[in-house]
């Protein structure tokens, strides 16, 4: 019984990932004009949607496929926290330096 449940859970996650990927691909092909011309926080709505969907997909892969969701809280935090701190920091440094080239913002 639990055997069937956990494989079914894996397949549900597969369909979720497939769904988000399909949405991304359709948005990438049709590029709705209102999503390109409207900006939020300096990013077009289209790109913001792509980034949010990507992070949702990453959450499912890490939490379910890589089983991090089933590990102890301390392991979860020690893996995820450095990522949430270091990657935005790295991107902040790189992209703000890029803006000094006079190309963005």
């Amino acid at each position: 019984m639990s055997e069937n449940n956990s494989t079914r859970h894996i397949w549900i996650v597969f369909w979720i990932l497939l769904f988000y990927t399909t949405v991304e691909v359709l948005l990438g092909i049709f590029k709705p004009s209102f999503m390109i011309s409207n900006y939020l926080l300096g990013v077009s709505l289209l790109n913001l949607t792509f980034i949010i969907l990507t992070i949702i997909k990453a959450y499912y892969i890490v939490s379910i496929f890589m089983h991090l969701g089933h590990e102890t809280k301390s392991l979860q935090v020690s893996i995820v926290a450095p990522m949430w701190i270091l990657i935005p920091y790295l991107l902040f440094i790189l992209l703000s330096e890029a803006s000094h080239h006079g190309a963005i913002g």
Partner: peptide
């Protein structure tokens, strides 16, 4: 992330 960040950097420039 460094690679993709560097990509973003050059793309903006």
């Amino acid at each position: 992330s460094a690679f993709l960040g560097a990509y973003g950097f050059q793309r903006f420039v």
